[in-house]
Amino acid sequence: MEYIIETHDITKKYNDFTAVNSINLKVPKNSVYGVLGPNGAGKTTLISMLCTILYPTSGTATVNGYDIVKNPKDVRKSIGVVFQSRSLDDILTGREHLEMHASLYGVPSEVRKERIEEVLDLIALGEKADQYVKTYSGGMKRRLEIGRGLIHHPEVLILDEPTLGLDPQTRESIWKYVNELNKKEDITVLMTTHYMEEADKLCDEVAIMNLGNIITADSPINLKRELKADTITIRVDKADKFIQEAEKLDFIKEIFRIDSEIKLMVERGENLVAEVVNFANNNKIFVNSIELEHPNLEDVFIKYTGTTIADGG
């Protein structure tokens, strides 16, 4: 397989704190690759190094074949970046942002107009394209930023938390947009997120990151399959007793406790719900609620770290 981004023991330390700890990532060409992890996992630090705006403490990476430390300029030409925080100027119009970006990235002037029209079509700003950005909605600003990152036809589009702070509807439309983009254009998308659903829906491959380390990386399907498990989430009145007793059951592979919830990892959970309730009753434990879930990436995260994504980091 051809890889467009490869990191080699890339590390970033701030005094005693290691934000990114010797990471080796391989991002296949033309894939949508997600880095999933809680806030503070080091995702943005990792991305910033790949964008050449932060120097690694040690190790390096190549993007589109260029070394991020030795050839930052070529790396920059190869990537389009959408930062986590907004990076628009309120007093310029959408079109002006695109024009400015095109000339900063040396898009030849004869194709510039065409490219801008092409992108404006794609991001569907309509007549807002010629109005000041301060009049845009959150979703429009995001789309403009993504579109801007595409003007110079980069090999890699880097999205740092692309849907952070957007409403569910806008989030869905950004997902759809990124998906179509990846199919239509010859482009690799590297994105970070702390929404499992986002990683699950969008990414061909996901690297799970926590506390500066990549814990595991694979396709969402494989990651979930690896769990070989459905999750039965149960709330009972005597949690400690339940866990103690349940450990004796062989169909339960693993037990996690998160606050008042007990998660039982089982195979073919739909056949076991009744059994678990009976088991609790036989032990004089009252079941408040029981729920069956097929695995999602959150469970993968819990398996590897013992915490939820929201609590991690």
Binding site: I53, R76, V81, S87, D89, H101, G106
Partner: peptide, 16 residues
């Protein structure tokens, strides 16, 4: 101010 509004990043990450 450009830095606070994030716009400086867009300029600094450009290949110039």
């Amino acid at each position: 101010i450009d830095r606070q509004y994030g716009f400086l990043k867009e300029i600094l990450v450009a290949p110039i």
